[in-house]
């Protein structure tokens, strides 16, 4: 089974993000970048399927030089090959990213394409569905359980208030959700083995962004809490405020 996993490098969730001076982006200099946690699920799932079906896992990622550390993370987990689609920066538009990925994916003749349901930085959640459209193959999104046989997949996906079980023929796309698996740690052996793998570099035509970021702002600060008094005497006033000001009881 020939498996591709599309990954993205994103800022560490513990990083305190600072908006850049022009308010169009964030200050990248101080950021610790990591492999997108949802993509980690995709890498893990790819490795498990490859182990069960004697397959091979290729990771693909698009972006500037700095993303090689995310690619190395995936290789250290056990992926066999890697393709770095080199760009000066990450496109803002998921349509542009998906088009560039599709060009490379078409060349690879993959049976299964896995990716996280979303990247935790820009949260578009669009790459999977757009790739499905561009490559003309089915996609199962937000998948929490996956069974793969030689020519089809059965996937359980989260829907509002329940689960949906779907089946589709290979080749197919699956976007991964928490609960699907528990990603393995990159072992020291894996880290050293990854060192020997040559990352293939590709340059493709990336379409221009069709969206533009006008402004990035911090969320508004929470107003401080209010202490209305102490003991039983304060209760009537508290109830009045909860009714009239907060409007949480009636």
């Amino acid at each position: 089974m020939n498996i591709a996993v599309c990954i993205k490098q994103v800022p560490d969730t513990e990083t305190k993000v600072r908006v850049s001076g022009d308010k169009k982006w964030i200050e990248e200099g101080e950021i610790n970048f990591i492999l997108n946690p949802y993509d980690e699920l995709a890498v893990e799932e790819g490795l498990k399927i490859a182990e069960a079906h004697s397959g091979e896992v290729t990771v693909l990622s698009l972006g500037p030089d700095r993303i090689t550390s995310a690619i190395r993370s995936a290789l250290a987990m056990g992926a066999n090959k890697a393709i770095h689609i080199k760009t000066d920066k990450n496109p803002l538009d998921p349509m542009a990213t998906a088009e560039a990925l599709a060009q490379v994916l078409r060349e690879g003749n993959y049976d299964l394409i896995l990716l996280g349901k979303q990247a935790i930085d820009d949260d578009h959640q669009q790459i999977g569905p757009i790739l499905s459209e561009k490559l003309g193959i089915p996609a199962a999104n937000v998948v929490t359980k996956l069974e793969v046989s030689a020519d089809k997949i059965t996937a359980e996906r989260q829907i509002e208030g329940g689960f949906e079980k779907i089946e589709c023929a290979l080749p197919a796309i699956v976007t991964t959700q928490r609960g699907l698996n528990e990603p393995r740690y990159a072992s020291l052996k894996g880290i050293m083995a990854a060192k020997k793998i040559q990352i293939e570099e590709k340059i493709v035509t990336v379409p221009d962004d069709k969206i533009e970021i006008l402004e990035i702002n911090y969320p508004p600060e929470k107003p401080p809490g209010k202490i209305v008094g102490e003991g039983a005497d304060a209760v009537p006033e508290l109830i009045r405020l909860l009714k009239e000001e907060a409007k949480v009881i009636s």
Partner: peptide
């Protein structure tokens, strides 16, 4: 090095 960074991350995560 890349390997040292990966190692640091993986051991931190594990711990």
């Amino acid at each position: 090095t890349t390997e040292q960074k990966l190692l640091k991350n993986t051991v931190r995560d594990f711990a």
